[in-house]
Design a protein around this nucleic acid. Structure first.
Length: 871
RNA sequence: GCGAAAGUGGCGGAAUUGGCAGACGCGCUGGACUUAGGAUCCAGUGGCCCAAAGCCGUGUGGGUUCGAGUCCCACCUUUCGCACCA
């Protein structure tokens, strides 16, 4: 272990070492820990990031997704905030009026779990974590407008959740419904479909059960078409996210068709995306949950067995149901295929989903793989109605799988009026016929389901509804908001929601009849909190209304939204939905809340694993022959997400203590393109530190040196090239190459300083400081002030490149012979073709490659390359 | 299974529209300054070769082209998303 001041000692001595001037004796040393807290305090004292939203200016709304206050942040979390801060500082220097707020997604399960485990109140635990995270943001040198801070667990925020709920309720967009829900026996709560991963609870991993419960829903499905169509307007969103949303919404074009069922006396309606194959529908399958099932099997001889089977299927989790494979039961009844007019058997099948379409399908086993498997299993007939374009007949008995022609390559056969049509045309035509004959209609269906917002949990927004025995369900009147979450509840960890046992909370007065009534004890999904918080940031202290429409319509949509890909679907979809509902209420002029979206990649790091699969702390790992061991056991290194269980978390404190926050920032941005996963390397950090040290020492040298004479024109050229490169790269989020451009410039500048300076060196150096500021804000502020500048470099003007001064005066042209590089020639800029060929002719080395050959072709790529093709 | 993205030195990664592959950094090698170095500075660093010349080289195999990391076809690998959605 090195001594506590090892790195400082090193720097001290480097100052005494002989060598180039800028490493020579200087009173100034780069000691980040000496300067960083000073500037953090100065920015905070000057409230540099506070903005008056009512003041005019070239507005820019930047937003990092507000975090769940889980406590300590590691360097992986830092990436998100550091890149946001770099952008923010850049835009400030561009003169933009930038709103950059931060808040806390402060309701949620972990706080409650902490209460149960450690006896600390969720609110106390949450506020404590918020304090620690704020301090960490400050240590990273990250600027937020803290005058706009919000925490969703506070009544002045969540009352507007309740207000929003009431507006949706009024419009029929919030409703109570009975639904089979995912129940986590461990957490004693209902889970949304998306919180169930592989049949297990996303949080605790327990196997999820199905239960029928009465729950609150938001009717997001009513907006499915608009949410889908709106994706096309989001030019500046990652394609990946749009695709994920599109798949999640799952828009399908098809037809609803009625099949008459004599035994029922009415028709069964099915949904299909392939109405063109209806002549091939040889049986029908209903979900076991289908409402007509009881009637269909009422007189079935094996009714008891079928009911037992249905009960069994219904009890299975989604995962178990799928793992069971395809199973079915024949109801004994038939339906009439409206086109062939044949009687076809009606089956029940575990693979038919009750929630999608009508819960009933027509089965076309020849052209749908699922129907094919089911038909083969139960010996049901196949009929081919789509063939290849060459008209070759298909041998049904030999089919190993369904033929699912979906495009022009399929041609309809055996189908009366649509025979001979290619599939897309056939679909259009058959829908026309279906509608003409009154058999059904063309429809659009969505995979998206309504948003289940009820949670049987304490630490969330109380749903503002009252149950009165006399008047029924009653909304809490708006003037009675907020319905406050009581703080004095016991946390036992048993039996669900402690709110339900809080007498003073539960007992309420009916707003209608003033009689005794009961309050709803469910709380809202925390995705409700995050579905509109970006609107609240503009006027966070307004206690009259949810937000100020005029100001919000000026500041939003958010110009740049930054966050993790894990929110690609739900958070963003819910936010887009709520924004539309507020638009429809006349409060917002826009339908899309986030104009630009950026998803940063994860920071990952290696961890060490025993053959048994347990993780080993790095302190216990020994390296022998380049392989990791613990004792005699050879370990495997596995790279992955930072987590305590893997012992691969890098906390920022030690890093900052040793190298400074600026080093962490520069390294984090330099490590990889920000949208990609990046492997953290403890060794790599030193490169960023050395770079900043060189910039620092160079500044000291320039300050101490007598600058005179002419500066090397290459320095000025490089400066303008660097301004241009850094600017365009920041705009394109290419922070890694922006920093490499700054390193190149600093190397050129360093050479010029070593060579004795020049009067314009100071200007070039101050330009370097400005370009570096978004990445290394503390060091650049310090150097800026050491150079005698007033005011923050943060508020200095971003440099502008002079294109004329960027031009090189000599151009190197690569020379190829038959496509292989054989030499280079230099010509004066701007290069002309004739002079390039003259230089090639004069180049002995290249001529040796041409000697004795016949020139077939000469190619000139302006300013870059020539290629001589010879035989 | 369906959909998407990505495969470049020992490592992280560069490379406008096809035009000098490996910028920048880590690591490594040698040197300087040193009692010392996990400090600092200088030089070198894709492979083959003592070196030069040259040859080879961007997952694999083909193709287009004067010219391919980049375009086309087929395949392999990895990661991510969805997963019976009719």
């Amino acid at each position: 272990m090195k001594s506590c001041c090892g790195w400082r000692t090193g720097l001290c001595q480097s100052a005494q070492a002989a060598g180039p001037p800028y490493t020579a004796r200087s009173l100034m040393q780069y000691r980040p820990t000496d300067i960083e807290p000073k500037w953090q305090k100065a920015w905070a004292d000057a409230r540099v990031a506070e903005i008056d939203v009512a003041a005019p200016g070239d507005k820019l709304y930047m937003l990092n997704m507000f975090p769940y206050p889980s406590g300590d942040l590691h360097v992986g979390h830092g990436r998100n905030y550091i890149l946001g801060d770099a952008l923010y500082r850049y835009f400030r220097m561009q003169g933009r009026a930038a709103l950059n707020p931060m808040g806390w997604d402060a309701f949620g399960l972990p706080a409650e779990n902490a209460a149960i485990k450690r006896g600390i109140h969720p609110r106390e635990w949450t506020l404590g974590n918020i304090g620690r995270m704020k301090a960490q943001f400050a240590r990273w040198g990250i600027l937020y407008d803290w005058s706009k801070e919000i925490a969703s667990c506070e009544a002045d925020y969540y009352r507007w959740n309740q207000w929003l709920f009431l507006q949706l309720y009024k419009r029929g967009l919030a409703y109570r419904g009975t639904a089979p829900v995912n129940w986590c026996p461990q957490d004693q709560t209902v889970l949304a479909n998306e919180q169930v991963v592989d049949g297990r609870c996303e949080r605790c991993g327990a196997l999820v059960e199905q239960r029928e419960l009465s729950q609150w829903f938001f009717k997001i499905t009513e907006y499915a078409d608009r949410l889908d169509a709106g994706l096309d307007t989001l030019e500046h969103w990652p394609e990946k996210v749009k695709l994920m949303q599109r798949n999640w919404i799952g828009r399908s074009l098809g037809a609803d068709v009625d099949f008459q069922v004599p035994a029922l006396g009415h028709a069964l309606r099915i949904f299909t995306t392939r109405p063109d194959t209806i002549f091939g529908a040889t049986f029908m399958v209903l979900a076991p949950e289908h409402p007509d099932v009881q009637q269909l099997i009422a007189d079935h001889p094996d009714r008891a067995e079928i009911e037992a089977w249905i009960a069994n299927v219904r009890n299975q989790s989604a995962l178990e149901r799928q793992e069971a494979g395809k199973e079915g039961r024949f109801t004994g009844k038939t339906a009439i295929n409206p086109f062939t007019e044949e009687e076809i058997p009606i089956w029940l099948g575990n693979f038919v989903l009750p929630q999608y379409g009508t819960g009933a399908i027509m089965s076309v086993p020849a052209h749908d793989q699922r129907d094919f498997e089911f038909a083969r299993q139960y010996g049901l007939p196949l009929r081919v109605v789509v063939g290849p374009p060459d008209g070759q007949p298909v041998d049904v008995a030999a089919m190993a799988e369904a033929f699912t022609f979906k495009d022009e390559n399929g041609v309809i056969v055996n189908s009366g009026p649509i025979d001979g049509l290619p599939v897309p045309r056939a679909i259009e035509r058959i829908i026309q016929i279906i509608e003409e004959r009154g058999l059904g209609k063309g429809t659009v269906r969505y995979r998206l389901r309504d948003w289940l917002i009820s949670r049987q949990r304490y630490w969330g927004t109380p749903i503002p509804m009252i149950y009165c025995d006399a008047c029924g369900l009653q909304p809490v009147p708006e003037e009675q908001l907020p319905v406050r979450l009581p703080l004095d509840v016991p946390f036992t960890g048993r039996e669900g929601n402690p709110l339900a046992k809080h007498e003073a909370f539960v007992n309420a007065t009916c707003p209608q009849c003033s009689g005794a009534a009961r309050r709803e004890t469910d709380t809202m999904d925390t995705f409700v909190d995050s579905s509109w918080y970006f609107l609240r940031f503009v006027t966070p202290r307004d206690d009259e209304k949810i937000f100020d429409p005029a100001l919000v319509n000026r500041w939003l949509p958010v110009d740049q939204y930054i966050g993790g890909i894990e929110h690609a679907i739900l958070h963003l979809l819910y936010a887009r939905f709520i924004t539309r509902t507020l638009h429809d209420m006349g409060l917002l002029q826009f339908e899309e809340p986030f104009a630009r979206l950026f998803n940063q990649g994860m920071i990952i790091k290696e961890g060490f694993k025993t053959p048994g699969g347990s993780w080993v702390p790095p302190a216990e790992v020994e390296w022998r022959d380049n392989k990791p061991y613990r004792g005699d056991t050879e370990l495997t290194a596995e790279i992955g997400k930072m987590s305590k269980s893997r012992f691969n978390v890098v906390p920022p404190d030690e890093l900052i203590e040793r190298f400074g926050a600026d080093t962490e920032r520069v390294y984090t941005l330099f490590i990889a393109p920000p949208e990609k996963e990046a492997a953290w390397s403890d060794e790599g950090v030193i490169g960023a530190y050395r770079f900043l040290g060189r910039v620092w020492n160079m500044g000291a040298a320039i300050l101490n040196a007598k600058v005179s004479g002419d500066v090397d024109p290459r320095v000025i050229r490089k400066m303008h090239q660097t301004i241009d490169a850094v600017t365009s790269r920041i705009e394109r989020f290419e922070f890694n190459t922006a920093i490499s451009a700054l390193m190149e410039f600093s190397n050129v500048l360093g050479d010029a300083v070593n060579a004795g300076g020049g009067a314009e060196l100071r200007e070039a150096y101050e330009t370097l400081l400005k370009l570096l500021h978004p990445f290394a804000p503390h060091a650049t502020e310090e150097l800026w002030s050491l150079f005698g500048n007033d005011g923050f470099i943060l508020t200095a003007k971003w440099p502008v490149a002079d294109r004329a001064l960027m031009q090189e005066d000599e151009v190197v042209i690569a020379v190829q012979v038959n496509g292989k590089l054989r030499g280079q020639v230099e010509v004066a800029a701007p290069p002309e073709e004739a002079s390039v060929w003259a230089a090639v002719d004069a180049n002995e080395k290249i001529q040796t490659w041409l000697a004795g050959k016949t020139i077939v072709k000469k190619i000139y790529v302006p300013g870059k390359l020539v290629n001589v093709v010879v035989k």
